[in-house]
Design a protein around this nucleic acid. Structure first.
Lengths: 250, 250
DNA sequence: ATGCATTTGTTCGTATGTATC
DNA sequence: AGATACATACGAACAAATGCA
């Protein structure tokens, strides 16, 4: 009784095992960004597979943002420094395929930005406060030029706050979600009739947020940041979704 | 003067254009989940490329979780219903490659879970409240059995709250981040000496959170949920990272 | 339940454009 | 400018796996 316990087997593709090995080497650090992979011909020898299999593996690794290969490069594929490009890609397709509504995206962004402000108010350095000052100053001058310039400067402020939060994950996710939201409605905002009023109101709100961050009052900074984003975007969110956003304001 | 404005060109790979077309069809809805792609041989005719190129495109699409192909299937690759698998994958590699600390992950989870509770307290239906009741009951019985069972039941509660928040993005992200955190430290918790005390304390805390959700007090539910998670995980977070977590408690 | 036709997984050989030295 | 090594792309072929009659 009690013979050996067998486990169900799944046929694992050859290219998949190549991906695992290379991905493992990158995650383990034995293959650092900037380093080069062997050439495809060399890889087919090392893994004892054909050229096509090596290439399919490289395509998967490239899709995940881990390597990049160019024709003619004598050095083989390059190991890339990690960028949230893959994360961005999968969140973008999620937003499109899964029909994420603008309300959900804005609500999520309010949540992340609020947390970043809460943390930044406690942990920010003097240098980081100066960066935020500079970002708001840039918003003020950019508002005179164009909405695009203003939007870019606005991004700069939120990014400075996210950096000051000390949480890299928060920083990356705020960045990704923000770009998705902006892609969805930047043209709507750009053509809004009350665009100028919206921008100057936004600047005042950002100044209030920064004052709270400077004072070290995290809960206040968080609440003000949520309200700032709500005021800025609520006009573009369908009425039936606004209740959820208001629930985030307390 | 004023000749035509030329744009820099980048050579775009053949497989990349195939990916774009199929991906576009999926996102546009003209290729619904469950439907089948033409066979590889049919695709190489339609796109006028070789089979290797078709296969590289399919590998990329597969890596993004959009399709799945099995050997021998006469129906061609299957269009998959969207799952956050790709999102999970990219966040996991982010956590490993970018050296995300446990503190950052727990802080992020506190943020998401808190927002889910805030929204759920306002938007939950009676049915959803019953689901949360059932989840806590399951936690109570599971705690008598094993830590693994308890952990699974705990996931059930948080998932019920996330569903009740009405924000799919929040639901997906809480799920992804939670599984990453649990993968990092579940074995540590399982072997903790005060495991039983931790579990029963956690159940009491969850009951308090649920009471706040039932009462419709979002801010209270949010604060209690943050505290619950803090108490549960703080013992495993390095001391220097605890300040950031405490900043989230207010 | 058994073949059979078809498809995918994989291999090999070849031709072509390109980047580097 | 030329030689070399590389990636891109094509096409034919075989084995294993699948679905269907």
């Amino acid at each position: 009784m009690g013979g050996p316990r067998f486990e169900p087997v799944r046929t694992v593709r050859a290219y998949e095992r190549i991906v695992e090995q290379i991905e493992g080497a990158v995650e383990a650090g034995s293959l650092a960004p900037g380093q080069r992979l062997p050439s495809e011909r060399e890889l087919m020898v090392q893994f004892a597979v054909s050229r096509s299999t090596v290439r399919e593996a490289l395509r998967v690794l490239q899709a995940r943002g881990l390597v990049r290969s160019r024709p003619g490069d004598p050095n083989g594929a390059e190991v890339l420094p990690f960028t949230p490009a893959a994360l961005h890609k999968s969140l973008t397709t999620l937003a499109r395929v899964d029909q994420l509504s603008l309300g959900e995206l804005v609500g999520f962004r309010m949540t992340l930005d609020s947390a970043a402000n809460l943390l930044a108010a406690r942990l920010r350095t003097e240098t980081q406060l100066k960066e935020m000052d500079a970002a708001i100053a840039a918003m003020r001058t950019a508002a005179e030029i164009s909405y695009e310039a203003f939007s870019a400067a606005d991004v700069g402020f939120h990014d400075a706050v996210a950096r000051a939060s000390g949480n890299k994950l928060l920083q990356i996710c705020t960045d990704v979600v923000r770009s998705i939201v902006l892609n969805l409605i930047s043209e709507k905002i750009a053509s809004a009739p009350d665009r100028d009023a919206l921008m100057s109101q936004s600047i005042r709100h950002h100044e209030e947020v920064l004052a709270a961050v400077r004072a070290g009052d995290g809960p206040l900074a968080a609440r003000l940041s949520r309200r700032t984003m709500y005021e800025y975007y609520v006009g573009y969110v369908p009425a039936r979704e606004r209740e959820a956003l208001r629930a985030l304001l307390d």
